[in-house]
Design a protein around this nucleic acid. Structure first.
Lengths: 249, 249
DNA sequence: ATTATCTATAGATCTATAGATAATGC
DNA sequence: ATTATCTATAGATCTATAGATAATGC
């Protein structure tokens, strides 16, 4: 199982990913159906394609990455890719959705927690921290894909953008609720908080980002909105833990 | 004169751009040397190429933009581009340098001001505000080019990256000086502040960003570093104005 | 029989160069 | 004579498809 697959399994249990994972498990059981590779076989082809594509898209962009590059890195021939994906853009789409979906699901749980009477500042802190932790531990700094120009523009990714927008509007709504500052509306609050959360992306390009940095960034989201140290401490203390929300220990 | 040329003229007077601008002025004097275009001639070809490329690179990335697209938008034939630029990547390089250079020069002036005894928090505020104002008023949200994956990776742009790094290290140095928070080193401070400044980029994708938002973002850079409202007000009051630094009224 | 891979390639690009052409300037 | 443009194209891609091949499974 590749790093990517393990990551997905961790966050996506019980979601859309199940079908894929079940198929993977089956494939592992029976031995080697189909023509063997020219090179040696090292794992699950589909995951290897996604993994290779992630690395290359992040480094070189979509247009700068050819199907041949991807195939080479995955250890297969270029044409074999099309057995798994109908088009190059579909690989990127799957990478994007796999990455944003767990963030969004965490967001929805925290949102529900707030609707049930939870403190909005605590919810904002919990959401930011959860998101930062995903971005900093995801394989290959994959969130760098979010900001590819093609993803922003191309119609092929509208579905993905809708998921992102939902997350950002949670940030905006919570942010506008808790800020004591005049002049910060939902749009601005959402952009500032989201942008701070995503500071993990450039930070990771220079090396690993630890959990202490994650907490500083998450608190920074409250600071930038003008909360004073007492309010921040209270929010941190009141924030729900991952476990208390998921219900899986 | 295109929007891009006017922008450059405004910020770059006295810099490398002078040569280009002088050439432009000359060209304007004598009438129409060289073979006329198939379409009508609308302005300075070189600037039109840069302008067209900026729009397309931002929207579609480097790999997603062909020389034919650029030429078409600039109103010339594809091959004519090569009279002005030896390669596609050179167009992007010039766009990048034109945009970061004025920010960096403002940064150096403010840095000098601080070395001469200016308050570091005030310097940080002034630098952030100046930078945000450039990014929000530059033509075509051109700062979106900074984050193209090719620019991060390709050796062709190392020179540009050095300029960016210098700016970020100013942020980091000032930030680490002024923050009362433990656990924020230069690297983290630089990344957080730079990232906040660049929140203009996504904000502009949804519409114009006004000067009030710019001030909120610049103050946000101090807030995220843990400065209290009194310290922020003091920094804003003590910040040097653009005019006091440039010496050109 | 089914599946995953392979080889080979059609068709559509795309970048950059070569060399012709149509203006102005001396 | 100089310059900026044009047309045409070589050469090098790149994506996606067609169809052969080599394994397992029934």
């Amino acid at each position: 199982m590749t790093e990517l697959a393990a990551y997905s399994a961790c966050w996506e249990a019980g979601s859309v990913m199940d079908g894929i994972l079940r198929r993977v498990a089956q494939t592992t059981k029976r031995r080697n159906p189909g023509r063997p590779r020219a090179d040696e076989v090292t794992g699950e082809t589909r995951e290897e394609i996604l993994d290779a594509a992630a690395v290359l898209f992040i480094k070189q962009g979509l247009g700068g990455t050819t199907t041949r590059h991807i195939a080479e890195r995955a250890g297969i021939r270029q044409a074999t890719m099309y057995h798994y994906f109908a088009a190059k853009a579909d690989i990127l789409l799957e990478l994007l959705e796999r990455t944003v979906r767990p963030s969004l699901e965490a967001g929805r749980r925290i949102w529900q927690w707030m609707l049930d009477g939870g403190d909005p500042a605590a919810a904002l802190y919990a959401l930011a921290l959860s998101d930062v932790n995903m971005l900093r531990t995801a394989p290959h700094n994959i969130a760098a894909l979010y900001i590819l120009p093609e993803v922003r523009a191309d119609e092929h990714y509208t579905q993905f953008r809708a998921l992102r927008d939902e997350l950002q509007s949670m940030y905006g709504d919570l942010g506008a609720q808790v800020t004591p500052l005049p002049g910060i509306n939902e749009e601005l609050a959402g952009a500032l908080v989201m942008q701070l959360v995503e500071s993990v992306i450039p930070l990771r390009q220079d090396g690993d980002v630890g959990p202490e940095a994650a907490r500083i960034i998450a608190k920074g989201c409250l600071r930038v909105l003008g909360l004073d140290p007492a309010a921040i401490a209270a929010a941190v203390a009141a924030a729900p833990s991952e476990e208390s929300l998921t219900g899986r220990v």
